[in-house]
């Protein structure tokens, strides 16, 4: 071990992410970590704990909540905040709350108000000037071109043609008052890297990633889990127990499950590798506007 010189790809990725986290803490005035409780957030949080150990990460966790996440996600969220010794801020857009915006009746407005608007409101409310996000470049085409330090105007807009060049590992975190930076420490990780890292480091994740018998209904070709009694069943619909798991986690009425028997991490990875559809396929968000859905959302301020 002592004369080992070439780092493995995971060691290099980890070192890069830690470097990014520390640069932001050193140069930003008021950073925050956006915590969505998914597997990518789990890895990002773990990296933050490594970066500042033995100190707790010197910034709070921010969960932009839609009130429609899986119950298991809320449980893990609260547990991880306790274990990491970090402050947990939960923000729910009051307007969306008042108007009772929900994924069943309001379609795209649900994501727009709870998530896009909610995020902007939260960042403005607390005055954060740098926000860590768990986006990866391999997720989606417009992500592939986003910088690790992604500069946002005072109105949170993103201009893909006017990004700062990013050389070596020198990041420019300077900005004027009111402007902010979104930072993506795990930009260069792939889905497989994330799984492998969770496996090697025993990173706690939501149990919904593993297969189990769960109540489901099939709707528009998607398998949805009936996570609580707010799920309005249509006439003739009856929840069926199926062995399912989730490849990504969001609002439970919007997140499609896959039928699976993978109950352990290696089995999940096995299935992921042998699967023939991409990770975001279970999500509706990428398909608006002729393939440019995510790019458009990002210009509007979506993470």
């Amino acid at each position: 071990m002592l004369d080992k010189k070439t780092l493995t790809h995971l060691e290099r990725l980890e070192a890069e992410s830690i470097h990014i986290l520390r640069e932001v803490v050193s140069e930003a005035e008021k950073p925050v970590m956006l915590y969505s409780v998914g597997k990518d957030s789990a890895v990002m949080l773990h990296l933050a704990r490594k970066a500042f150990y033995p100190s707790p990460p010197p910034f709070p966790l921010l969960h932009v909540d839609t009130t429609w996440k899986f119950r298991a996600m809320y449980e893990l969220r609260n547990r991880m905040a306790r274990e990491s010794g970090m402050e947990l801020l939960v923000y729910q857009n009051p307007e969306a709350k008042d108007r009772g915006i929900n994924p069943f009746d309001h379609g795209p407005l649900h994501t727009d108000m709870w998530k896009t608007e909610g995020l902007k409101q939260a960042l403005n409310l607390y005055g954060f000037d740098a926000a860590f996000g768990g986006a990866r470049r391999d997720e989606e085409k417009s992500r592939a071109k986003e910088r690790i330090f992604s500069f946002r105007t005072a109105s949170h807009g993103w201009d893909p043609k006017n990004q700062r060049p990013e050389l070596w590992n020198l990041y420019n975190a300077r900005k004027n008052k009111g402007e902010s930076i979104r930072v993506f420490p795990i930009s260069n990780w792939t889905e497989l890297d994330i799984w492998q890292y969770i496996h090697l480091n025993d990173v706690p994740i939501v149990p919904l990633y593993f297969a189990d018998k769960r109540p489901t209904v099939e709707r528009d070709g998607m398998l949805l889990m009936v996570d609580d009694d707010r799920f309005p069943l249509q006439p003739g619909e009856e929840p069926v127990m199926r062995s399912i798991r989730f490849r990504t986690l969001g609002c439970y009425p919007l997140t499609g499950a896959v039928e699976s028997e993978a109950r352990t991490l290696p089995e999940v990875i096995q299935e992921t590798l042998l699967t023939t559809t991409s990770e975001r396929q279970g999500r509706a968000i990428d398909k608006d506007a002729g393939g440019a859905g995510m790019e458009k959302k990002k210009q509007e301020g979506y993470f």
């Binding site: 070439t6 780092l7 493995t8 790809h9 995971l10 290099r12 990725l13 497989l192 492998q196 496996h199 090697l200 290696p266 089995e267 990875i269 096995q270 590798l273």
Partner: peptide, 14 residues
């Protein structure tokens, strides 16, 4: 042999 595969993957360089 997913375990064996993961071992191989773990030691990949970049």
């Amino acid at each position: 042999d997913i375990d064996q595969y993961l071992k191989v993957h773990e030691h990949k360089t970049m």
